[in-house]
Amino acid sequence: MSTEKFDLAGFEKKYVARLKDRTLDWNVLKFQEEVDPSYKRAQMRYIGRGATANNDANVIQAEHFTLSTMVLPAGCQGPLHLHDDVEEVFFVIKGSITALIQEEGSDEVHEIVLNERDCISSPPGVYRGLRNDSDEEALMLVMLGAVKPNLPTYPKGSALEELRIKRAKEREAIINAK
């Protein structure tokens, strides 16, 4: 049995993330918005860096997964993308979204409407995307099942896939700079 007194303040500093200390990051996915303005959305990180690998010192360090919230404005979308190494979960907190699912190698995109407190888990190797068809913004919880997920890929030949290839070296430099 340990004789040291539990350090509650230290524990809280390391393991508690409060809304009042977060800001919406409208720039983390700005590179997508520059390709298509309908890709506008914001992320608020709580645990880990996520697949974008942005260096955010104001997060709980991830041990097994990443967790963030995402605002998807009315009429906007998250483009189809594929994580080859990790499942991704979208949990709708507010509003509604249409989840887009496409098997690798297929041209068919399936649509699944998700309302408040609905959830979808996309396994590795499946393209997934989101669209907000409503007149109100949607708020989602997003979780990736790895501490440092691989950078997602986009459909072959798309403008986003070409941009991803160019940005891959920048991402690795961010991760390695810790």
Rank of each mutant, 00 (worst) to 15 (best):
L24R: 07
P149D: 07
M143D: 02
M44R: 06
I112T: 15
L141S: 08
S106W: 06
A168G: 03
V86H: 04
T23C: 12
C76V: 01
E104R: 14
L82F: 07
V16T: 03
Y127N: 05
T66D: 01
G145P: 07
R22F: 08
P124E: 10
S106K: 13
S134I: 12
K148S: 06
A42D: 04
S121Y: 09
K148C: 04
E104L: 13
L144Y: 08
V142W: 03
K13C: 04
R49W: 06
A62D: 02
N150K: 13
K40N: 12
V86N: 09
N150G: 11
S96W: 00
Q102P: 03
N132C: 13
K169M: 14
V92K: 04
D36P: 05
L141D: 02
F91C: 06
I120M: 04
K178C: 07
E63C: 09
A17F: 04
P149Y: 02
G105N: 03
L144I: 14
T66Q: 02
N27V: 08
E4M: 08
G145H: 07
H83I: 02
I101M: 04
I175R: 10
H81L: 11
L144P: 00
D84Y: 11
S158H: 00
I101P: 00
P79C: 02
F11E: 09
K14C: 08
G10L: 09
F6D: 06
L163V: 00
I101W: 02
C119R: 08
M44Q: 08
P152W: 08
T69A: 12
M1H: 11
F11P: 06
M140G: 00
M140W: 03
E161L: 00
E34V: 05
P149L: 06
E116C: 05
G105L: 10
C119M: 13
V28I: 15
M143A: 15
S121A: 15
S134V: 11
H64I: 10
C119A: 09
K5V: 14
K166D: 00
F6G: 10
D118T: 02
S158I: 00
E33I: 02
S68F: 11
Y127E: 06
A53M: 12
L29Q: 15
V28A: 07
I101D: 01
G95C: 09
N54E: 14
F91Q: 07
G105T: 07
A177I: 08
A51C: 11
E103Y: 07
S96A: 11
K94C: 07
I120K: 01
F31I: 05
G48Y: 04
V28W: 01
D118A: 04
I174P: 01
A51Q: 13
K94H: 15
H64Q: 11
G10R: 06
M70S: 10
R131C: 13
R45D: 03
M143Y: 01
A62F: 05
H83W: 01
M44G: 03
Y15S: 10
